[in-house]
């Protein structure tokens, strides 16, 4: 049983939970993830560690509502308990002094890149962050990421805030005009793929955090297979960080869609349940 100490809505569909999990907090490092599971009928879902406080014994996750499980977790309030909270899983992000590092993040991943930017800054890097959103109403944590960034660029697809356009545009400019030691890109798969394509011609090593479907998160099932440099890897133990230029993106995108029909069935059933009964969760 893991108690939720805080719940915050960063946007209408992106939520933060701060959870009491001292054993996980003690070991957490930037780039690692946890698995949450709740209720006999629940699914095990992976979420990146967005923050931790070792003294307080807490771990923070930030997630976006996309389907059944994330919508269920969106019902949680401060004071509720989550049955299972496992971690920290996966390898931590490689942190060194690379000179100048560009951190690119989109959507919910703004939260997950913060600890990486913080660690990169602490390791002596100059940190330039690019955060991308669909529209102004979805912007969050500009101040928080800004705190660890020497420069911060915000883009929105519709131009309602910051620069109009995609994160890859400022990324291209930076790669053209500056001496960049490393790029970290985290967000929706398609954004990571295009960030990889953008940096590849410049030969700047780019790290992405892959998010295939997982079950156990400990290397036991093989659900999270990805191909990197022509080899099959398990994202939960060999990653989730990988060299973006070696990832087989089309395979990843295809595998993420493996249960599309079932996810729809499950989601419709839950939504129907909710509107019908009038009380969710």
């Amino acid at each position: 049983m893991y108690r939720i100490l805080e719940r915050e809505d960063l946007t209408p569909t992106i939520h933060l939970l701060k959870i009491e999990a001292p054993r996980v907090a003690r070991k957490a490092q930037a780039g690692q993830f946890v698995i949450l599971h709740h209720g006999e009928e629940g699914e095990r879902i992976p979420l990146t560690i967005a923050d931790w406080d070792r003294a307080e014994g807490t771990v923070t996750v930030v997630f976006m509502e996309v389907g059944t499980s994330t919508r269920k977790f969106a019902q949680f309030k401060a004071g509720d308990v989550v049955d299972d909270f496992v971690g920290p899983l996966g390898k931590p992000t490689e942190i060194e002094n690379y000179g100048t590092v560009v951190c690119v993040a989109g959507g919910f991943a703004i939260a997950t890149i913060v600890p990486i930017a913080r660690a990169m800054k602490a390791a002596g890097n100059r940190v330039i962050s690019i955060m991308g959103f669909r529209t102004k109403d979805l912007v969050f944590w500009e101040d928080r990421l800004g705190q660890f960034s020497d420069e911060l660029i915000v883009t929105t697809d519709d131009g309602s805030y910051g620069r109009k356009g995609l994160v890859t545009e400022p990324l291209t400019e930076l790669l053209k005009t500056r001496d960049i030691g490393r790029v970290i890109a985290i967000g929706p798969t398609i954004m990571m793929k295009f960030s990889a394509l953008t940096s590849k011609p410049f030969g700047v090593k780019t790290i992405v955090s892959l998010n295939p479907i997982m079950v156990d998160g400990t290397g036991m099932c093989g659900a999270c297979r990805v191909e990197v440099g022509g080899e099959t890897k398990l994202a939960c133990v060999d990653g989730p960080d990988f060299d973006a230029h070696l990832v087989d993106w089309d395979l990843l995108i295809s595998r993420q869609r493996a249960y599309l029909d079932q996810e729809k069935t499950s989601d419709e059933r839950r939504q129907h349940h909710c509107s019908g009964g009038g009380h969710c969760g």
Partner: peptide, 14 residues
């Protein structure tokens, strides 16, 4: 994960 009871249980199998 009792996928044989999907969609009552949330984990699918194909």
């Amino acid at each position: 994960m009792k996928a044989y009871l999907f969609p009552q249980y949330d984990t699918p199998v194909k």
